[in-house]
Simulated scan of single mutants.
Amino acid sequence: MVSSMAGFAINDALVKSLGDDLSISQILGVRGLMVSILIVLVLWQRGLLSRWKEALIPMVGFRASMELAAAYCFLMALVQLPFASVSAILQALPLAVTLGAALVFREVVGWRRWSAIVIGFIGVLIIIRPGTGGFAPASLWVVVSVVFAASRDLSTRALPASLPSLLVTAATALLITVFGLASVWISGDWVPLNARHLQVLALASVFLFVGYQFIVLSMRTGDIAYVVPYRYTNLLWSIFLGYLFYGEVPDAYTILGSSIVIAMGLFTLYRELVRPRQRIPQVLG
Rank of each mutant, 00 (worst) to 15 (best):
F135R: 10
Q45P: 00
G265A: 07
S36L: 13
V216L: 08
V144E: 01
I255Y: 08
E272V: 11
E54L: 13
L284I: 14
G134H: 10
G222Q: 14
V283G: 02
L181I: 13
S205W: 09
S162P: 00
G242D: 04
G32S: 03
S3M: 14
W114C: 02
L38N: 07
L203A: 14
V168G: 05
E272M: 12
P58D: 08
S139A: 12
S151L: 14
F135E: 12
W114T: 01
G242I: 05
D20Q: 13
A88K: 09
Q282F: 13
A138Q: 06
L103E: 06
F148Y: 04
G131T: 07
Q278C: 05
S85Q: 13
V147T: 07
W114Y: 09
R112K: 13
G123R: 01
F207N: 09
V178S: 09
G61F: 14
V35I: 15
G257N: 03
V60T: 14
L93I: 04
V79M: 12
I27M: 14
T132V: 08
L167C: 07
L236P: 00
L269C: 04
A158D: 10
V178F: 15
G123M: 02
S3K: 09
K16R: 15
P58M: 08
V40D: 01
V216R: 06
L163E: 03
G123P: 01
V30A: 06
V30H: 08
A158V: 06
P58S: 09
I224V: 15
L48D: 04
M59N: 13
F105W: 15
S145K: 02
I37S: 10
D251S: 08
G134Q: 11
M264T: 04
V118P: 00
L181F: 06
V35Q: 07
F179L: 07
L38A: 13
V261A: 00
Q45S: 11
I280A: 11
F245W: 15
I224F: 04
E54H: 11
I117S: 02
S139K: 04
S25N: 12
F83L: 13
L81R: 08
V97M: 06
Q26M: 03
L14G: 08
G211N: 08
W237F: 12
L75H: 10
I215A: 07
Q278W: 15
S36F: 12
F207V: 09
D12L: 05
I260D: 00
T177K: 09
V79W: 10
G120M: 01
V144P: 00
V60R: 05
W52D: 01
L198Q: 11
V40Y: 12
F135W: 13
K16G: 02
G47C: 06
S17R: 12
L269S: 04
I10N: 02
A101T: 10
A6K: 08
G120S: 04
R271I: 03
L201E: 04
S183K: 12
V146C: 03
S151C: 14
S145E: 07
Q199V: 11
G257W: 01
L166A: 10
S3P: 02
I89H: 00
A263C: 06
Q213P: 00
P160N: 11
L217Y: 10
V42G: 03
Y72P: 00
